[in-house]
Write a protein that binds this DNA or RNA. Structure first.
Lengths: 137, 137
DNA sequence: CCGAATCCGGAAAGATACTG
DNA sequence: CAGTATCTTTCCGGATTCGG
């Protein structure tokens, strides 16, 4: 990693270069992974095909809007497929694609690490929080 | 957050249970990992001890404020240590802790996956984007 | 039943000036 | 050099409503 080049000292000056060759795609994944709902949805979808309402029921506090947005983003990135059946009470099924499934591994890694360090983080936080106004009144 | 108060018709049912036992700590990690700057900073810190200015120089477009916030959050979570020397031109060093270093593995996994799927995602996006207004002209 | 569009409030990012 | 205080702006997320 270590992208290195700050690029600030470019003679052209004031060039707001944002082009970091090797992490262009990383940002996207970060966005998905950092998203509050995406992870939940992917996890639910990992179990199999799900319908819209079903997902909304499965994911605790998600709103209809957020579910739609989340699914659309995932679909756009080719992580899930959307199959709509033109039945009378419209019915749409969502399913993870190959990429989507491989992403679950990443999510697992995230969850594993989190579970592994959750205690330490909680402690560190408590300590930090207490330290803040430790001596003073 | 505040899932509960839709205010109006709350017909006893549809209890907005938010208690997800196995992902309490995950959210925190997600926040850090999903953060635009945190990852960059951690990567730079992975190489060794760094000073404030140094980090700012190393990370392309970050502002003092964002760097400060990012570092403070990391410090709070026990991922980095802050060591300040009371010299005349104040001097502070930041260093990754054990947890911090272990987090780099997670970041690496993230980067690896991203790099591996970046192409597919780009394609999927292009396709999706084109499909949107495909037929017409 | 699915989901698109709209309105709105609050939180976080961002830039800058200023202080120790 | 390091960090805070202040202001601005941007974006996320929820509620609502209309259409297929």
């Amino acid at each position: 990693m270590s992208v290195g080049h700050t690029g600030v000292t470019t003679p052209a000056a004031t060039t707001p270069v944002v082009s970091c060759a090797e992490e262009c795609g990383v940002r996207d994944v970060q966005d998905r992974l950092g998203d509050k709902w995406t992870v939940h949805v992917v996890v639910e979808l990992a179990a199999g095909v799900r319908r819209f309402r079903e997902l909304q029921r499965l994911v605790p506090g998600i709103s209809q809007r957020m579910l739609t947005l989340t699914l659309r983003r995932l679909e756009r990135d080719g992580l899930v497929t959307r199959t709509g059946y033109p039945t009378v009470p419209a019915q749409v099924e969502y399913e993870l694609t190959g990429s989507g499934h491989s992403m679950t591994h990443l999510i697992k890694a995230l969850v594993d690490w989190s579970l592994d360090h959750r205690g330490a983080i909680a402690e560190a936080r408590a300590a930090y929080d207490a330290r803040g106004r430790g001596g003073g009144a």
